[in-house]
């Protein structure tokens, strides 16, 4: 464990908590993409199957359980409890166009052709693009509530911090995983446009408005 990975995990946890607070406090999931939340749930389930086979540390097990339960709690809030506030019209990204290619790519490019490894690789590729429906929704509505933009900033920062973690681990431990690094780089790049808007607007107290 290193400071970059810890900061990344905490940023990830913060993002998940911010999202739950936003939905619970405003009793609405307006501006949030349910499609992205479905993809995140698929990412966690397909990545954390080793919960039952490998014990790495209490921290590792605990965080995995928190991520899985919170993602299903978010789905419940969005598709059941506050279903009436879900923005069906704008949340129209076809996630099958993400799920299928990621799965095919995981079958073709992976570290070893075993079910666990292929599913882990699938979750890595899927996580890289899982935010697209959310960014698509923000671009369609043209704006985002400030807490939603804080959620996105924390979520985008987590994988950016992981990139620093991978640089650190390469030099400190000689450990690296090209699949995770490439996917993590793409995932972070997808946020760049949002990061720019967040830093130039939201941090100045303005609302996140996308140029129409």
């Amino acid at each position: 464990m290193n400071i970059f990975r810890l900061a990344g995990d905490l940023s990830h946890l913060l993002a998940i908590i911010l999202l739950l607070i936003k939905i619970w406090k405003t009793r609405s999931c307006a501006g949030i993409s349910g499609k992205s939340q479905i993809l995140f749930a698929v990412v966690y389930v397909s990545r954390y199957l080793d919960l039952v086979t490998t014990f790495i540390s209490l921290y590792n097990t605990l965080m995995k359980l928190v991520f899985i339960t919170s993602s299903f709690a978010t789905l419940y809030l969005m598709y059941v409890k506050f279903k009436a506030t879900y923005d069906h019209n704008h949340d129209s990204f076809r996630i099958e166009f993400l799920l299928l290619p990621c799965f095919v790519l995981a079958l073709l490019i992976n570290a070893s052709f075993t079910p666990l490894e292929v599913l882990w690789t699938f979750s890595i590729y899927l996580e890289a693009v899982a935010i697209l429906p959310q960014l698509f929704l923000v671009s369609k509505t043209g704006e985002a509530e400030s807490i939603t933009s804080h959620y996105l900033f924390a979520l985008g920062s987590y994988r950016a911090l992981y990139l620093l973690n991978w640089i650190y681990r390469y030099y400190a431990e000689g450990h690296y995983d090209l699949i995770a690094i490439f996917a993590g780089a793409i995932q972070t790049i997808l946020y760049c446009d949002f990061f720019y808007l967040y830093i130039t607007k939201v941090l100045k107290g303005k609302k996140l408005q996308l140029p129409a």
Partner: peptide
């Protein structure tokens, strides 16, 4: 054993 491809990460 050596963790396969970063499995010790979240």
């Amino acid at each position: 054993q050596e963790k396969l491809s970063g499995k010790d990460e979240l």
